[in-house]
């Protein structure tokens, strides 16, 4: 039985695409058959973050319009044979596909894959409607900023109205030093406002920038963000995993600095 998960946020730039790439790769590492669909027609990114841009010949719009078969458009990942990507078109816009066509497309993929991840575009217009049309489950990504949370709240409302059965929250780009100083909301503040289940918290990590630039998802690697993404994958499969301690242990040098600061 396959599950269709949409990764959405409302606001742009909070990490939907990065999350899709890492969660998808993480699920593939756990031996699941995964397909990632980029639904951001006209502003595609997922292929770049996955490092598969140079393999694109056909795309989602070609499949929907019948210019090619599904098999021709799916790109097998270079690292994991059970991970595929259906890229979006760059030269068209959101109106090239309708929600009904998306549902049909997803149903076709359900037979071959355990997890179908949809990378949703920012906004609540046609692209969003396309992305959530066939989804069983939603991961709402937000950062601990008022603007992102406001948009996430609106998105959660829309997801409920569109009968997406299960909605869970990912808090991205947490900076524990700022939380400690009281300059940033902590996870509890965010979950209090949004009142949905938390499925993961990801620290702000410069490794993420490096990994997206290189087109190599960092899930499963040794850094904190990599571990946080791996944990989300386990939780998606229904396993109970304790939340990471995101606190960065300060070095001796750092402690010395703090002492001097206090004086």
């Amino acid at each position: 039985m396959s599950e269709v998960i949409v990764i959405t946020s409302g606001k742009g730039g909070v990490g939907k695409t990065t999350t899709t790439a890492n969660v998808g790769t993480g699920l593939a590492q756990l031996d699941k058959k995964v397909v990632l669909i980029d639904t951001d027609i006209g502003l595609r990114n997922l292929d770049v973050v996955m490092g598969l841009e140079n393999r694109i010949v056909y795309n989602l719009v070609d499949v929907v319009e019948g210019n090619c078969r599904m098999k021709q458009a799916l790109i097998k990942d270079k690292r994991y044979p059970n991970l595929s990507l259906l890229p979006s078109a760059q030269t068209r816009d959101k109106s090239a596909v309708s929600p009904e066509q998306m549902v049909k497309l997803i149903d076709e993929l359900r037979e071959d894959f355990d997890y179908i991840l949809l990378d949703c575009p920012a906004g609540i217009e046609q692209g969003f409607k396309n992305a959530i049309a066939g989804a069983d489950r939603a991961l709402v990504v937000t950062t601990p900023e008022v603007s992102a949370i406001r948009d996430a709240d609106r998105i959660i409302g829309l997801l409920g109205a569109n009968e997406v059965k299960r909605t869970e929250l990912i808090v991205n780009r947490l900076r524990m030093d700022m939380v400690k100083r009281g300059d940033m909301m902590n996870i509890n503040d965010v979950t209090d406002i949004l009142a949905i289940d938390l499925i993961g918290a990801i620290p702000d990590d410069e490794q993420i920038v490096i990994s997206t630039n290189q087109g190599e998802p960092l899930v499963g690697s040794d850094c904190l963000a990599g571990k946080a993404f791996a944990n989300i994958c386990h939780r998606i499969l229904g396993e109970e995993v304790p939340f990471l301690d995101l606190e960065i242990k300060s070095s001796v040098w750092g402690k010395l600095k703090e002492i001097f600061k206090k004086n």
Binding site: G51, E53, I56, V57, K78, Q214
Partner: peptide
């Protein structure tokens, strides 16, 4: 280029080396 197609033949750019040394 990302891709070059001449007639029916497609060539794509080499994948970037996985090793982390290469700067963006």
């Amino acid at each position: 280029p990302i891709q070059i197609k001449i007639g029916e033949i497609i060539g794509r750019s080499a994948d970037k080396p996985a090793a982390g040394k290469k700067r963006i």
